[in-house]
């Protein structure tokens, strides 16, 4: 790993935390997700800064940024774009939808019906959209930052579990500390600080970082540890469905990215341990599933499982 990449990462992180206050861990996880070339789902009650984080990340990178506000009447073509009849030429021309950006902020994704959701999710997993038989590749880098409210709120369409695992991580944002909140209040006195954010990275640099992630070495024993954890979820009696192979791969990639963010060229067990809950907890399905307390229960359960797995030394 070159120090150049490292500098880029820390610049990016500083830039974001400048406006997103008291959310260092969430910001770091989002960057990890970006470096792992994958998507992230932010989940919490309204107003804790989900959108802000997405905006700040997008603004820090000089790349195409789209924001899609998901509503009940949003159509798939509102996302992917579609063929529009041009009366002047007498032809249908393809008009790109907002999905053709580098960083997509998908706000309140669970407010839209499943049909629209799946249009987004397909684009996320395939990194391309197909309209009337024509495939259009999405640009590189491509990252979706989706936000959603907890399910107990009215008028939502919860994402099915099968689709949740398109996201590398599900992160609960949480309330900021009191001090941070005070700072939030004062910084918002004049204007929105996020609007003044400068680019620190361009798309090429992001791609370089993403390639750098793959150079991070992972010791054999770490692989074993990772698989032990995955195995534990599969054997756990409280879970109906354990973590898939894709989940294991995601955890692997995320750990590499985290190592890069933390200026290391190798993964340590702590990386795995730290990422297990955000990367895995939305990939399992519990027996006797209770909707309201679902996320927290799963996070606690996964945390407990990790606590039972022996760490290599």
């Amino acid at each position: 790993m070159t120090t150049e990449l490292q500098t880029l990462v820390s610049e990016l992180e500083n830039n974001i935390t400048q406006v997103v206050l008291g959310k260092a861990e969430v910001v770091r996880l989002c960057i990890v997700s970006l470096l792992a070339s994958d998507h992230v789902l932010l989940e919490d009650v309204p107003g804790v800064g989900k959108t802000l984080i997405g905006k700040a990340l997008a603004k820090s990178i000089s790349a195409g940024f789209s924001r899609i506000q998901f509503t009940a009447d949003l159509l798939p073509s509102d996302i992917t774009g579609g063929n529009v009849y041009n009366p002047q030429t007498g032809q249908f021309t393809y008009t790109r939808g907002p999905i053709f950006g580098n960083i997509i902020l998908a706000d309140e994704i669970n407010r839209t019906p499943p049909r629209t959701q799946s249009a987004l999710l397909e684009a996320m997993s395939d990194r391309q959209v197909t309209i009337d038989g024509v495939t259009h590749a999405l640009p590189q880098p491509f990252m979706v930052i989706a936000t959603q409210n907890p399910f107990e709120f009215e008028g939502t369409y919860p994402l099915p579990e099968s689709q949740l695992d398109r996201f590398l991580m599900r992160i609960a944002v949480g309330y900021p500390d009191r001090e941070d909140e005070i700072q939030v209040l004062s910084s918002h006195r004049i204007n929105e600080p996020v609007d003044n954010l400068q680019h620190v990275l361009d798309a090429q640099q992001v791609v370089a970082l993403q390639q750098g992630v793959r150079q991070v070495t992972v010791d054999e024993s770490i692989n074993g540890y990772l698989l032990d954890i995955v195995d534990a979820t599969r054997k756990c009696e409280e879970l109906r469905v354990g973590v898939s192979t894709r989940g294991a791969l995601c955890l692997y990639r995320a750990a590499q990215a985290l190592a890069l963010v933390e200026n290391r060229s190798f993964v340590i067990p702590d990386d795995i341990k730290r990422l297990t809950v955000p990367v895995l907890s939305h990939r399992v399905i519990a027996k006797g599933y209770l909707q309201g307390t679902h996320r927290q229960a799963m996070e606690t359960l996964i945390g407990r499982l990790v606590d039972d797995v022996a760490v290599p030394r």
Partner: peptide, 10 residues
């Protein structure tokens, strides 16, 4: 003493 599920750093 390090617990088995504790990483060395923890």
């Amino acid at each position: 003493v390090r617990g088995s599920s504790q990483t060395a750093f923890e």
